[in-house]
């Protein structure tokens, strides 16, 4: 090998290592910037007043984010309660029951659902679900119920495909063992396969929660955006993401700082979810 060749190989390696570092640099930039801009507010407003304050009124410099945090949590909880059972049933169907051809159709459908942009889900929500919810539950139709319904469909692909992965990694000998002991197919699924895949399914649900909390456009379009702690399910609320998206383009001063603080909270939450999922998985590797 000539000398020029060797230094070329070295240059190539350097480029690849820099490219790999870009992922870390990108994440650090986001963390540093959001942290920097997101903590400016706390020079003027107490952290606890921000997190637990019940009044969000930027016009009179009130930055209590509790209504927004509660809004995000309620909408997310609704979405996960609706979506998790459905997703797990679909995952069971895909791994345990469906003929291969049928399974392929459903997998394709799930991938396509995952690819549909959130603004289209929001648009469908406005056009189809809002009038339906208005008729059934009264009120404006914008609010917790509608947002949870829209989100439940949006997080279905996430939970289903991860749960499917968890179920299909359960070894077949577990299944044969259960069937040989005389259990029905459902008993085998319920008593053997699901418990064996428990950790994977839990991580699937956690990542679904993460997606639901971070979802912006679809929620913004159907949630109503009223920053008040809700008293019933057909009330409009505002979420952290919807308020950021609505206000960031004109906010200034403390108001802008407060929006970045909300972004900071969202970033921390999404990092927590990843850490939890990694913890859950670490355990599962040790067990197998």
């Amino acid at each position: 090998m000539t000398k020029g060749n060797k230094s070329f190989e070295k240059a190539i390696k350097l480029f690849f290592s820099l490219a790999a570092s870009a992922t870390i640099v990108g994440l650090l930039l986001i963390i540093v910037y959001i942290t920097k801009e997101g903590t400016l507010l706390f020079g003027k407003v107490n952290v606890f007043d921000f997190l637990f304050g019940k009044e969000w009124k930027p016009s009179s410099a009130r930055f209590g984010a509790l209504p927004l945090i509660v809004g995000s949590l309620v909408v997310t909880a609704g979405a996960v309660i609706l979506s998790a059972p459905l997703s797990i049933f679909v995952a069971i169907f895909l791994t345990e029951i469906a003929p291969k051809k049928v399974a392929n159709y459903i997998k394709t459908a799930i991938e396509l659902l995952a690819g549909i942009p959130s603004v289209i889900y929001g648009f469908m929500g406005i056009m189809v679900l809002v009038p339906m919810v208005r008729q059934v539950f009264g009120g404006s139709g914008l609010g917790i119920i509608t947002a949870s319904l829209v989100l439940s469909i949006m997080i279905l692909p996430t939970i289903t495909s991860l749960a499917e992965g968890a179920l299909s990694s359960v070894p077949d000998r577990y299944r044969y063992g259960a069937l040989a002991l005389g259990s029905t197919k459902w008993e085998m699924i319920y008593h053997v396969v699901l418990p064996a895949a428990k950790r994977g399914i839990i991580s699937a649900i956690i990542l679904g929660v993460g997606r639901a909390i971070g979802e912006t456009m679809a929620v913004l379009m159907v949630v109503g955006n009223v920053a008040k702690i809700p008293e019933s399910l057909n009330q409009p609320v505002a979420t952290m993401t919807s308020i950021i998206a609505l206000d960031i383009s004109y906010a200034s001063g403390l108001h802008k700082y407060a929006l970045f603080s909300l972004g900071f909270v969202l970033l921390l939450l999404s990092m927590c979810f990843i850490a939890i999922v990694r913890g859950v998985y670490k355990g599962s590797y040790e067990r197998v």
């Binding site: 992922t23 959001i34 972004g263 969202l266 999404s270």
Partner: peptide, 12 residues
């Protein structure tokens, strides 16, 4: 990065 919400990318 893949779990960071898109609005956070936006404000960043």
């Amino acid at each position: 990065l893949s779990s960071v919400p898109s609005i956070v990318y936006g404000i960043f």
